[in-house]
Simulated assay, not measured.
Amino acid sequence: MTRANPLDLSVEDFSPRTRDDKPRVDRETISQVAKDNGFHSRDAAKVEAAAAAGTPRRHRRFTTGRNQQINIKATADTIARFNKLADELGLPAGALLERAVQILEEKAKR
């Protein structure tokens, strides 16, 4: 039993496709079909306007030497309160957490 050689083909068996195989559709037709089916354009101006409408978040960048991460699930309200308190006190989130733990430990000792 012999194996068939996949490279044993003649180049003459292949020919390039002509452009007539798949005619192009004009852009107006594509736009109309998209509009009829509820697809909207993602124009940069619309994206910028939507981004400007929301409240921008302040970036908190501190060099603190903390290198451990804690991932805690909380409600959106709790996270907002935590971030607001950190902003008001001008503390990084890690420092606020340390301070909160310290206060809770002191209360537990009483």
Results as ranks from 00 to 15, higher is better:
residue 92 P to E: 04
residue 67 N to Y: 06
residue 88 E to I: 06
residue 86 A to K: 06
residue 80 A to I: 13
residue 108 A to E: 12
residue 47 V to D: 03
residue 15 S to H: 08
residue 35 K to I: 05
residue 55 T to G: 06
residue 95 A to P: 00
residue 27 R to F: 06
residue 107 K to Y: 06
residue 106 E to K: 15
residue 30 I to Y: 01
residue 47 V to S: 06
residue 82 F to L: 09
residue 43 D to H: 08
residue 5 N to R: 04
residue 26 D to M: 04
residue 72 I to A: 09
residue 91 L to S: 02
residue 65 G to P: 03
residue 95 A to H: 08
residue 70 I to R: 05
residue 99 R to S: 07
residue 91 L to H: 07
residue 3 R to K: 15
residue 47 V to C: 01
residue 15 S to T: 07
residue 62 F to E: 15
residue 45 A to L: 05
residue 44 A to Q: 09
residue 7 L to F: 11
residue 80 A to W: 07
residue 49 A to F: 00
residue 48 E to C: 01
residue 28 E to I: 06
residue 35 K to H: 13
residue 13 D to T: 09
residue 50 A to C: 00
residue 69 Q to N: 14
residue 52 A to Q: 07
residue 62 F to I: 03
residue 80 A to L: 08
residue 22 K to P: 00
residue 25 V to A: 09
residue 32 Q to C: 05
residue 61 R to I: 04
residue 35 K to T: 15
residue 58 R to K: 11
residue 82 F to W: 15
residue 7 L to H: 15
residue 96 L to M: 01
residue 88 E to Q: 12
residue 37 N to Y: 05
residue 78 T to E: 14
residue 69 Q to L: 10
residue 69 Q to G: 03
residue 57 R to Q: 11
residue 86 A to R: 10
residue 39 F to T: 04
residue 33 V to F: 05
residue 27 R to D: 10
residue 45 A to V: 04
residue 51 A to M: 10
residue 36 D to A: 10
residue 51 A to F: 05
residue 19 R to D: 08
residue 109 K to R: 15
residue 42 R to M: 07
residue 39 F to Q: 01
residue 99 R to W: 03
residue 33 V to I: 14
residue 52 A to P: 01
residue 53 A to S: 06
residue 2 T to L: 08
residue 23 P to C: 02
residue 59 H to L: 14
residue 22 K to T: 08
residue 11 V to I: 10
residue 72 I to D: 00
residue 73 K to L: 15
residue 28 E to W: 10
residue 33 V to N: 04
residue 99 R to K: 13
residue 33 V to K: 09
residue 3 R to H: 15
residue 70 I to N: 01
residue 35 K to N: 09
residue 72 I to Y: 00
residue 105 E to D: 15
residue 94 G to V: 03
residue 42 R to G: 04
residue 36 D to C: 04
residue 31 S to F: 09
residue 82 F to I: 03
residue 94 G to P: 02
residue 9 L to G: 02
residue 89 L to T: 13
residue 34 A to T: 03
residue 51 A to Q: 06
residue 22 K to M: 11
residue 79 I to R: 05
residue 69 Q to R: 14
residue 58 R to L: 11
residue 34 A to Y: 01
residue 63 T to D: 13
residue 28 E to G: 10
residue 50 A to S: 05
residue 69 Q to A: 14
residue 23 P to K: 08
residue 6 P to S: 04
residue 110 R to P: 03
residue 5 N to I: 02
residue 14 F to D: 00
residue 61 R to S: 09
residue 97 L to I: 05
residue 39 F to G: 00
residue 14 F to N: 01
residue 16 P to T: 15
residue 40 H to F: 08
residue 11 V to A: 12
residue 60 R to V: 07
residue 77 D to P: 00
residue 48 E to N: 01
residue 61 R to Q: 12
residue 99 R to D: 02
residue 63 T to P: 04
residue 73 K to A: 09
residue 39 F to D: 01
residue 29 T to W: 00
residue 108 A to I: 02
residue 26 D to L: 11
residue 1 M to P: 13
residue 92 P to A: 12
residue 77 D to M: 02
residue 1 M to H: 10
residue 76 A to R: 13
residue 31 S to V: 12
residue 20 D to A: 14
residue 33 V to C: 03
residue 9 L to Y: 10
residue 11 V to Y: 04
residue 66 R to S: 07
residue 69 Q to P: 01
residue 51 A to T: 01
residue 63 T to V: 14
residue 84 K to Y: 06
residue 21 D to P: 02
residue 12 E to D: 12
residue 45 A to Q: 06
residue 94 G to Q: 05
residue 78 T to L: 12
residue 105 E to V: 10
residue 26 D to K: 07
residue 40 H to R: 13
residue 56 P to F: 02
